[in-house]
């Protein structure tokens, strides 16, 4: 794990619908810090709040949702208080984001190269430098025929090539932090593998920090140093990648791992099911959000546990004593 001051520091972040009386939080009390050059994974199922948390960081929450409380500091600057102009400067040049579906993140009517040039111009590059930098970053992401890609419209490129182009665009203004939201989910495994290797090598070259949001534990295991597991808008476990996979300390993490066929799982044998469904993120239910689905729930779980230390480099939000349950 890298040391030093964090590049991103999220503190007690609450995101939700602001109401005059009793706002409704969907992301609840998320705290996470990412050191310079660190790779952090955020794992969760749909509706767990993982994407909303990252959109909140960038000030890109969809209409109707707001940051209700907490802070988001990027390189020491509180983004929740930053003016829109300042946020636009930080997006791209400080923090860049890559999304799941490159086809929908690019303008279908403009050539790929032009869109990167345009982004760089917005960050103060002159036309010539912007073109030079565009060629450079398209080369960095391993696109063989830079000229052709640059002059193509998005529909003329394959999914893997487009996602490379998106990563090139994200890297263009040399951000300190790259946020990747399921960027390989729509791709073939072989292409996914290439993108993972690409991001790992670019990260090593540039020293940027990476936050990788995914529902795929395997992808995360391969890339990141630390993992935050989210459930119902909260971080329920936070630990180094090795600890999470070897000794999960939250029953939800353990259940997720158990639901995958892994080496050693009996062929056609029953896979572990979690049963039930995640709570409505806006529900006012008290207590541990995983309680209704948890095999080990006790009366104590009627009160919500907070994230607490479970040993070196591992925290979990669970009342159970470490080791008092097993999978």
């Amino acid at each position: 794990m890298s040391s030093g001051s964090p590049v991103l520091s999220i503190g007690a972040l609450e995101v939700g619908v602001r109401r005059r009386r009793g706002s409704q939080a969907i992301v609840r009390g998320v705290s996470l810090s990412v050191a310079a050059g660190e790779k952090v994974g955020i794992v969760g199922e749909s509706g767990s709040g993982k994407s909303l948390t990252m959109l909140a960081v960038l000030g890109l929450l969809p209409p109707g949702l707001d940051i209700l409380a907490g802070r988001v500091e990027f390189a020491g600057e509180d983004l929740t208080k930053a003016a829109p102009v300042r946020l636009r400067q930080i997006r791209g040049a400080g923090v860049a984001m890559v999304y799941q579906d490159p086809m929908r993140s690019l303008n279908p009517l403009l050539r790929v190269g032009y869109q990167i040039v345009e982004a760089l111009r917005a960050h103060g590059y002159d036309a010539r430098d912007a073109r030079r930098r565009t060629t450079e970053v398209l080369g960095m992401v391993g696109l063989a025929d830079v000229e052709r890609v640059s002059g193509s419209f998005p529909h003329e490129l394959s999914g893997g090539m487009l996602q490379r182009a998106m990563i090139a665009m994200a890297l263009a203004a040399s951000p300190k932090l790259l946020i990747a939201d399921e960027p390989t989910t729509a791709l073939d495994v072989t292409i996914q593998q290439q993108i993972l290797e690409l991001v790992a090598s670019l990260q090593a070259q540039t020293g940027m920090a990476v936050v990788w949001v995914s529902h795929d534990l395997g992808v995360v295991a391969q890339l990141v140093d630390r993992v935050a597991v989210m459930y119902a808008g909260r971080i329920v476990e936070l630990a180094t990648t090795r600890r999470i996979f070897q000794r999960p300390s939250h029953p939800y993490t353990a259940a997720l791992l158990g639901s995958l066929p892994r080496p050693g799982t009996q062929h056609r044998g029953t896979l572990q099911q979690i049963g039930g469904r995640p709570p409505d993120p806006a529900s006012a239910e008290q207590g541990c959000p995983f309680r209704p689905r948890c095999k080990y729930a006790t009366e104590r779980c009627a009160a919500e546990p907070v994230l607490s230390v479970r040993g070196a480099e591992q925290q979990a939000a669970c009342w159970l004593e470490p080791g008092s349950w097993s999978t």
Binding site: G142, A144, S158, G160, M161, V189, T190, I191, Q192, Q193, Q194, L196, E197, D216, L217, G218, V219, A221, Q222, T241, R242, I244, F245, Q246, L257, L260, R262, P263
Partner: peptide
């Protein structure tokens, strides 16, 4: 088979003897 991410850090930590990155 080598491109499939394995949810096991012992395997993932040390990348398997992977074939060279294939082109599209």
């Amino acid at each position: 088979a080598a491109a499939v991410p394995v949810a096991d850090p012992d395997l993932a930590g040390q990348p398997p003897a992977r074939l060279p990155a294939a082109q599209a």
